[in-house]
Design a protein around this nucleic acid. Structure first.
Lengths: 217, 217
DNA sequence: TATAAAGTTTAGCCTTGGCTAAAAATATAA
DNA sequence: TTATATTTTTAGCCAAGGCTAAACTTTATA
């Protein structure tokens, strides 16, 4: 079994990947000193889970990726399970799952997945990898990449930052929300979208973390 | 926050206590070498969580006890929660809770307790300590201490050993079971109890882990 | 293109929580 | 009561995963 630290490194490299993950970014995401990240990356390379080109960056081997996706699967199943049974605020889900994901046995993972009917997405819309790390190719596109006036449906919102999540939710933006881009204000730094009965300005940095699909009626 | 190891030591000392917990017993329960247990007991003594009289034994300080009971609370809430939502075998519950208990935030602990309606016992009948470590004085008595022919109701069964639990369950013995001791065979090593429509012989070692109350109609 | 800045790695240290082997204390039996 | 067995502790070791300070690469700038 991988330690909590190893699981967190693998998951973080996956999140920052797929290629040339910078030591600094990794260290920052994990809240450790850059030197600590270098050392761990080297250890993971020894173990065959990571490929590291010094001064260039790190990436996962296929075994490393499998294990990273196993952590992601547990995380997203837990978020879904907690959201369904208890009702915690969406913002709390991430942090709780973050700790519990390392303590979930394969049996409990399976029991939860079955209980939930083997869902394909978590409450934030993120796809849940299969038991062997299969990640459905998803056809979601970035809101920031869409053209004006297309009818869109939100599929994924970022869950890293609770405040952002609260803001999005407060403005009616969550998986399932229908919207259209009505204008882009590249110099003003955002895009304007219209919802059913309101409109919001969204920073590009945020829009590039929100995924949508074209509405099909 | 206490580490996983510290939480496990505190919980184990509580389970083996209240007084003069032997290094060897502690080491055995935790699956570590006796020398490791000695060292940790000393560290916990430094931290004011344990009182240690060398060559005599260890016991918890009141702060140590508070923290141990917090772990026990999380464990038992988790068992109850998992039993209620998923349906895992009673034997699986213990092992899962054993790992998850260390990853439960106070907020999630509270959310689970509320969801369950702040239960007083877990599925094995063990009392659940309150949020500040209050443990209701319970009036349960040991099956092994009861007299013949009293009408008894099982309140607690041990959850340490899955096989034992399965055996007890297979013989109809779980919280709520009504039974009577019909004979004791001290030299044969067991007691004979009669249930509604069967009778079973139970080893003294087992009967001294089963709690009952006198039936009140 | 030389030099400064930024990012990365190395070296060396620390704590936690394990281990074994040996020494010391306590308990048991002759 | 002395000798032996058992239990506990001490001493010294190790790996994991952190840290800081210094050295080394790479990138950006003058």
């Amino acid at each position: 079994m991988d330690s909590v630290a190893v699981e967190n490194y693998l998951k973080s490299i996956w999140e920052l990947g797929p290629d040339d993950v910078a030591t600094q970014d990794l260290a920052q995401l994990l809240n450790v000193a850059p030197a600590s990240a270098t050392k761990m990356v080297q250890r993971l390379t020894e173990r065959g889970l990571v490929k590291h080109i010094p001064y260039k960056g790190a990436s996962l081997t296929s075994e490393g990726r499998r294990r990273a996706l196993s952590v992601v699967r547990r995380h997203r199943l837990l978020e879904t399970f907690l959201a369904q049974t208890l009702d915690l605020g969406r913002e709390q889900l991430h942090d709780e799952a973050e700790r519990l994901e390392h303590a979930l046995s394969t049996e409990l993972e399976t029991a939860i997945a079955n209980y939930l009917g083997n869902p394909e997405r978590d409450p934030h819309g993120h796809p849940i990898p299969g038991p062997n790390g299969e990640l459905l190719i998803d056809e979601d596109i970035l809101l920031s990449d869409c053209s004006l006036n297309q009818s869109l449906v939100v599929t994924q919102v970022p869950d890293r930052d609770p405040n952002l999540l609260t803001w999005l939710e407060g403005n009616g933006i969550f998986p399932g929300t229908k919207l259209k881009i009505i204008s882009r204000d590249d110099f003003g730094g955002g895009i304007n979208v219209s919802l059913d009965d309101s409109s919001v300005q969204i920073a590009i940095s945020v829009a590039s973390e929100v995924y949508v699909i074209l509405e099909t009626d």
